[in-house]
C-alpha cells in the first residue's frame, strides 16, 4: 500500500530553488499529520554536496540521482527517472514546487503514472491517509477544494505560499541508480538575464506599474531597487510595449503571491486582480479615487504616482 511523502526538489547550478525548501517543509508538516516519513529526491550532476541541506527542513532521507544526463533539466530524463523512483518507493503523496520546471514535469508524471495531480496548491490538508488540497481556478477568482484519486497524489505547491520551517531530521543520503531511458530532448543553451533581477513569482515584494505610468518606470524601478523588489506590469503596459512580456502580472501573465504588492497607476481590471489577489498586503496608488483597485487593496493613496512614489523612495531611505 502506498505510504510516505516524497518531495521532488529542484536545483539550478547546484543551489536549491526556494520553492524546494517550501515543498520539503510542507511535505514534513503533512507527513507528521499522517504519521509517516519524508523522502526528498535531488536530481542533477555533482549535486551530492547540497543534498545534505534538505535534512534541515525535515527530510528523513534524501535520494540522490547524480548523473551527467541530469545536469540540465529535460522532461524525458527527469520523468523517466522519477517515474521509476515513485514506482519502486510507492509514496502516497508526491510534493514538488509549481515552478516552471514543476509545471512541465508534474503533468507529464501524472500522465505516466495515471494519477491525479493538482497545480499551484495553496493549502494542503492531511485527510484519510492522504491529502485534500486547495488551489485557485479561473486565475484565482475561485478557490477549489480538490480530492486526488490514484497513487501517488501529486501536489505542486505554488511558489512563495508555503512557509519554510526548519525541522531537523536525519536527512541520510542514498545514491540511486540513474536509468534515464530514451532522451530525445537536448538542452542547447541556458540564458539567464544579467544582473540580480528578481523573479516575480519568487519575490517578497513587487512594485507594479499600469497605464498610469505612461511607460515611465524609472521611479518604480528606483523604489523596487531599494526594497529589493521585483518589478511587475499590467497587461496594458505590456501590450503597449513599455515592458517585456515576462513582467506581466495577471490571469494571462504571472500569478504572484508576494508579502507586499504595490500597484502604481493600475486601475484594477479583473484579469489583473486575478494575478495578484493572494498577495499578503496590497497597496494601491492611483490618481483616480474611484479606481476598482482600491476595493482590492489594504492601503490606498489617491494621488499622482509620480509625486508619491519618489516621496516613498525618500521615506524608505530613512528607515533603511
Amino acid at each position: 500500500m502506498a505510504q510516505g511523502v516524497l518531495v521532488i526538489t529542484e536545483q539550478r547550478d547546484n543551489a536549491f530553488r526556494k520553492v524546494s525548501y517550501e515543498a520539503v517543509s510542507e511535505g514534513r508538516r503533512v507527513a507528521d499529520e499522517l504519521g509517516t516519513d519524508v523522502t526528498a529526491v535531488v536530481l542533477g550532476s555533482g549535486i551530492e554536496g547540497i543534498a545534505g541541506e534538505l535534512g534541515k527542513y525535515g527530510a528523513d532521507k534524501v535520494l540522490v540521482a547524480d548523473d551527467g544526463i541530469l545536469s540540465d533539466y529535460t522532461t524525458d530524463a527527469y520523468t523517466n527517472v522519477l517515474a521509476e523512483v515513485i514506482k519502486s518507493r510507492e509514496p502516497k503523496v508526491v510534493f514538488l514546487g509549481a515552478s516552471v520546471q514543476g509545471k512541465d514535469l508534474a503533468p507529464r508524471l501524472a500522465a505516466r503514472l495515471d494519477t491525479g495531480m493538482a497545480m499551484d496548491c495553496v493549502v494542503v490538508k492531511a485527510e484519510d491517509g492522504g491529502v485534500v488540497v486547495t488551489r485557485p481556478m479561473f486565475g484565482g477568482k475561485v478557490l477549489a477544494d480538490i480530492e486526488l484519486e490514484g497513487d501517488p497524489q501529486i501536489v505542486a505547491v505554488r511558489p512563495n505560499v508555503m512557509s519554510i520551517t526548519e525541522n531537523a531530521k536525519d536527512g541520510s543520503i542514498e545514491k540511486i541508480d540513474v536509468q534515464a531511458g530514451e532522451v530525445k530532448t537536448t538542452v542547447l543553451e541556458t540564458k539567464i538575464e544579467a544582473g540580480d533581477k528578481i523573479e516575480l513569482t519568487e519575490a517578497d515584494i513587487i512594485v507594479s506599474g499600469g497605464r498610469g505610468t505612461e511607460g515611465k518606470f524609472e521611479v518604480i524601478e528606483e523604489l523596487a531597487g531599494l526594497l529589493n523588489a521585483a518589478v511587475g506590469a499590467s497587461r496594458t503596459v505590456v501590450d503597449e510595449g513599455w515592458r517585456s512580456h515576462g513582467d506581466q502580472v495577471g490571469q494571462t501573465g504571472k500569478i504572484v503571491s508576494p508579502n507586499l504588492y504595490i500597484a502604481c497607476g493600475i486601475s484594477g481590471a479583473i484579469q489583473h486582480i486575478a494575478g495578484m489577489s493572494t498577495s499578503k498586503f496590497i497597496v494601491a496608488i492611483n490618481k483616480d479615487a474611484d479606481a476598482p483597485i482600491f476595493s482590492k487593496a489594504d492601503f490606498g493613496i489617491a494621488a499622482d504616482l509620480f509625486e508619491v512614489v519618489p516621496a516613498m523612495v525618500q521615506e524608505v531611505k530613512k528607515i533603511q
Binding site: 484565482g140 477549489a144 486526488l148 484519486e149 489577489s277 494601491a284 487593496a297 492601503f299 493613496i301 508619491v308
Partner: peptide, 25 residues
C-alpha cells in the same frame, strides 16, 4: 475524474481599504 472538485469557494474578502490621509505627497 481523478481530480475531484469537492467545493468551490470565493477567495477570502479583504478588509476594507484603509485610505492614507495627508496634504502633500
Amino acid at each position: 475524474r481523478k481530480v475531484k472538485i469537492k467545493a468551490l469557494n470565493p477567495p477570502p474578502e479583504r478588509k476594507a481599504v484603509k485610505m492614507i490621509e495627508g496634504e502633500t505627497p
